[in-house]
């Protein structure tokens, strides 16, 4: 097992927080890109990162979609897995105990087709061992609204967040995960925050399509799929920037194409208090631990003593200090 030291430069305090709950690192995995953590155990110390964000879980086990489920794209990929997973019973019986026994913290991602599904899932997670909080994957079609994605509608998003907040363990911060495929992400972010979200995870994948030039049909079994990886990083960063500018007190878990410590630094500077590493894990299964170390170095090199001081630093006024201020 590769054990990276928790803090590369002793001078930088890497303590982060998830809606007020302290974490040893601001680097987390991303939902759907680390399964339930176990498979990454050979590659790095899972207790050294902020949390394992679990694959979105629903009430019932799901087979997921037919293959092909992915296509590689320039600096990224599109996927259409269809939320394959064991359901909440399997999560509680097999996956969360495995993580908790090893002292690994989890941020449990939940998904549903109606508001009540989300509330029931949050309720079932009350008191579950090792759970740091709940990430609400509202990038799901709402069966009660002809399949419109919850996260594309501020009211539907707010309804889910309010229901989850009411049902969840009061000790569990609730993060709403936003889609970038909206005209105005700030209005959805505000609706979620007003409904009681303790933080926002952003961004989920962008809807994409790849056509096979040989078969002359869409590659994916699900036709369209979610685009992820470094290709979407500027979009993700723009979303974090806009939401932090509008809602500076709402904690953000930033993600989208983070592959290196310097990528993570950009999200921190744009206003994210912590980051998730998704597709990069497929390229480098030890990426979360590596990115933690690289981010610590990058902060130290820029004169930051604490991660917290760098959060949103790119928003400062032009005359308000310079990187040199911290040296």
């Amino acid at each position: 097992m590769t054990m990276l030291p928790e803090v590369e430069l002793p001078s930088v305090d890497m303590q982060a927080s998830l809606g007020g709950v302290p974490m040893v690192s601001p680097v987390l995995t991303a939902s759907g890109c680390a399964s339930f953590g176990r498979e990454l155990d050979p590659f790095f110390d899972l207790t050294s990162i902020g949390a394992v964000v679990t694959k979105s879980v629903q009430l019932r086990p799901r087979s997921g979609r037919a293959t092909p489920r992915m296509a590689e794209t320039p600096s990224g990929m599109i996927n259409s897995i269809g939320l394959q997973g064991p359901g909440i019973d399997g999560l509680l019986a097999d996956e969360l105990p495995w993580l908790a026994e090893r002292g690994v913290r989890s941020l449990v991602s939940i998904a549903g087709a109606r508001t009540e599904d989300f509330a029931e899932l949050a309720e079932r997670l009350r008191g579950a061992p090792g759970v740091l909080g709940i990430e609400v994957n509202i990038s799901c079609p709402n069966v009660e609204s002809r399949g419109e994605v919850f996260a594309c509608n501020p009211d539907a998003s707010a309804a889910v967040v309010a229901a989850v907040r009411a049902a969840a363990d009061p000790a569990h911060p609730v993060y709403a995960k936003l889609t970038p495929d909206v005209t105005d992400i700030v209005s959805v972010a505000r609706a979620c925050a007003d409904a009681g979200a303790n933080g926002l995870s952003m961004i989920n994948t962008l809807l994409g399509l790849v056509i096979d030039p040989d078969t002359m049909r869409p590659v994916l079994g699900g036709v369209t799929g979610g685009l992820s990886g470094p290709a979407i990083r500027p979009v993700a960063l723009r979303c974090v920037w806009q939401v932090h500018a509008a809602l500076p007190n709402v904690p953000i878990l930033g993600m989208g194409g983070i592959r290196t410590g310097l990528d993570a630094l950009q999200f921190i500077l744009a206003g994210a208090g912590a980051v998730s590493v998704g597709t990069a894990v497929f390229n480098d299964p030890s990426a979360p631990a590596r990115i933690h170390a690289e981010l610590a170095d990058a902060l130290g090199e820029r004169g930051f003593g604490r991660l917290a001081d760098a959060v949103g630093y790119a928003h400062r006024a032009p005359d308000e200090g310079s990187p040199g201020r911290h040296r």
């Binding site: 939902s31 759907g32 979105s56 799901r62 979609r65 996927n79 259409s80 897995i81 269809g82 939320l83 998904a111 087709a113 994957n137 990038s139 799901c140 079609p141 399949g147 994605v149 996260a151 889609t179 495929d181 989920n204 994948t205 962008l206 809807l207 994916l220 699900g222 036709v223 369209t224 799929g225 979610g226 992820s228």
Partner: peptide
């Protein structure tokens, strides 16, 4: 399953 796959990881 017959609605187009949506944001990232939708059913």
């Amino acid at each position: 399953a017959h609605t187009p796959a949506g944001e990232g990881e939708t059913p």
